[in-house]
């Protein structure tokens, strides 16, 4: 069974993100880049499906500039068999739909039985590409997957998605697209052998023209980014306890209107 895992390279969760000089993008200087954590659940699940079935192929795919190779390499170190890097100036300002179109073109060429993604990337939290990809392919799709089981014949997948207070279970005919939620599994870390072996695995560079795609004007444009306003300083109420309590209650009622 061939499984394609779409991943996104994002700033490390510990990064203090700063707005860049253009006011529309983040300053990428000094950022450590990682595979988006939800995507790691997707990679892990794909590897487990392959291991459980005893055969198959897991292909990692990502769209982005040269630095994205490193994210793909870490997927290879985890155990993916090969990787595809959509790397072209034509995609330098893509929105989610154009990303989904590029991915759909690859999926059509590769013809996997299952596509796995994270439920959203942790940078812009759009969470749109997976659904758009499924829509473009005309495949069924389920988000926020906490459990999945592909049947023995590889014809359907039973997927349980997280809903308020429980799980909602679906049977989806394959091929299908699933988006992983935290809790689906615990992703493995690369072993030293995995890291060494990843050097020998293929990362195929793909251009827009290879997929019969041209530059597509983005339908979404970022108008501006703003940092959160700094938190206003707290107030310490002085005085003895009875009068301080009175003042606290008054402030909560009249100033903060909290009670």
């Amino acid at each position: 069974m061939k499984i394609l895992v779409a991943i996104k390279q994002v700033p490390d969760t510990a990064t203090q993100v700063k707005v860049g000089g253009d006011g529309k993008s983040i300053d990428t200087a000094g950022i450590t880049w990682i595979v988006s954590p939800y995507d790691e659940y997707a990679v892990e699940e794909a590897l487990r499906i392959k291991e459980k079935r005893g055969q198959g192929e897991v292909v990692a795919i990502s769209l982005g500039p040269d630095r994205v190779r490193e994210a793909l390499r870490s997927c290879l170190a985890m155990g993916c068999d090969r990787a595809i890097h959509l790397n072209d100036a034509a995609w330098s300002a893509v929105d989610t739909l154009a990303t989904a179109r590029a991915l759909a073109a690859v999926v059509t060429q590769e013809a996997p039985q299952l596509v796995l993604c994270g439920r959203q990337a942790i940078d812009d939290d759009m969470g749109a590409v997976t659904a758009q990809l499924a829509e473009l392919l005309g495949w069924p799709c389920a988000y926020w997957i906490m459990e999945e089981a592909v049947d023995a014949d590889g014809k359907t997948v039973r997927a349980a998605r997280q809903v308020e207070g429980g799980l909602e279970v679906f049977d989806l005919p394959l091929p299908a697209v699933l988006a992983a939620q935290k809790g689906l599994n615990e992703p493995r870390y690369p072993t030293l052998k995995g890291i060494m072996g990843a050097k020998k695995k293929e990362i195929k560079d793909v251009k827009a023209a290879d997929l019969g795609l041209g530059a597509e004007p983005a339908q979404l444009a970022v108008l501006g980014l703003e940092a959160l306003p700094p938190r206003p300083p707290g107030r310490i109420i002085e005085g003895d306890v009875p009068s301080a309590v009175k003042e606290l209650v008054r402030a909560l009622r009249e100033d903060a209107k909290a009670i």
């Binding site: 990682i34 190779r69 490193e70 390499r73 870490s74 170190a77 870390y189 690369p190 072993t191 030293l192 995995g194 890291i195 060494m196 990843a198 050097k199």
Partner: peptide, 15 residues
Amino acid sequence: TEEQRALRAGVVEIC
């Protein structure tokens, strides 16, 4: 190197 960064990331994950 890219490989050394991967090495470090792997050890950090274990730690």
